[in-house]
Structures are given as structure tokens and as C-alpha cells.
């Protein structure tokens, strides 16, 4: 159904661009429209698209791990980002910020950022695994 040449040729390119967009949208989220949730949805749509054009096994192979593992990793990352302040004597979920200089450029690193990356993984992982399992007909998860 989805096997036209044009679609098969273009979809990896579109998927790759969409994934880059997803990362970009996630990281800019703190100051401009975007964030982990929307980024995760974009990433999931990229994988769903690739699944339609190249088949689910190809996507699974490219992902290496089960998409749900990415979601689990994201949840773990988010919880760890929340737990980290406890070890510095602050309360749960206090935001920690640091601004190291890398090659003369100030980089903002913070626990909310890692939390947002966790959200990205949870949303993209969960949505991708749902989409892939529905695309894959006749069994297998």
C-alpha cells in the first residue's frame, strides 16, 4: 500500500530531518515553543513514517533496543534528575544549574534539561512502540 518508489526513497530523508527537528525542538523548549513532550511526538512520527515505508523490522533493527526500553530509560533519567538535588542537601526536584565554558561558549546545563530529555524519551519511546506494534500486522510486539 505504502510501497511507492517516491515514498520509499524520500521517507528516510524525511525521517532523518524530522528526527533532527525533534532534537532541536526538545532542546530549544526552555526559551521558545517546544519541549520534551512535543519533541517526543515528532520523533515518534518519524519512526512511524519509516515503519510505513520500510517495514517494522527495519525500524526495530535501526533502533537496536525495544522502543519501550527507551521509554523506561527516559523515566529513569527524569527521576534521577529529580533525585539529584537530594544529594546536595536540597529538596526533591529543586532545579540545579551550572554554566560551564566550553571553547569559550557558555553552555547552560541543568536538571530541568535532563528531566525534559527524559520526557522526550518516554513520549517518543511509548508512542513509537504503540505505532510500530500496530503497523506490524499479524503478531509480534
Amino acid at each position: 500500500m505504502m510501497g511507492t518508489v517516491i515514498f520509499r526513497t524520500l521517507s528516510p530523508l524525511i525521517s532523518a530531518l524530522t528526527l533532527m527537528l525533534a532534537v532541536f525542538v526538545t532542546l530549544r523548549g526552555h526559551n521558545d515553543p517546544g519541549g520534551g513532550f512535543i519533541g517526543g511526538l515528532i520523533a515518534a512520527s518519524a519512526f512511524a513514517l519509516l515503519g510505513l515505508s520500510h517495514g517494522v523490522p527495519a525500524v526495530r533493527q535501526a533502533l537496536r533496543f525495544h522502543p519501550m526500553s527507551y521509554a523506561g530509560f527516559g523515566l529513569l533519567l527524569a527521576v534521577c534528575a529529580g533525585l539529584l538535588p537530594i544529594f546536595t542537601g536540597r529538596s526533591f526536584f529543586t532545579a540545579l544549574w551550572t554554566f560551564p565554558q566550553v571553547l569559550g561558549v557558555e553552555i547552560a546545563l541543568s536538571t530541568p534539561m535532563f528531566f525534559d530529555i527524559g520526557v522526550f524519551f518516554v513520549v517518543s519511546g511509548a508512542m513509537t512502540s504503540i505505532a510500530l506494534s500496530l503497523e506490524q500486522r499479524g503478531g509480534g510486539v
Binding site: G29, H30, P33, F37, P112, F115, D116, V119
Partner: peptide
Amino acid sequence: VAHGRNVVNVIIVD
């Protein structure tokens, strides 16, 4: 406090 201009996102993650 939260070093972010996007209020919606700051509410969500912080």
C-alpha cells in the same frame, strides 16, 4: 529563578 523564557515549558519541567 528558572532561567527560561518559555513559561509553559518551565512550568512543565521545573
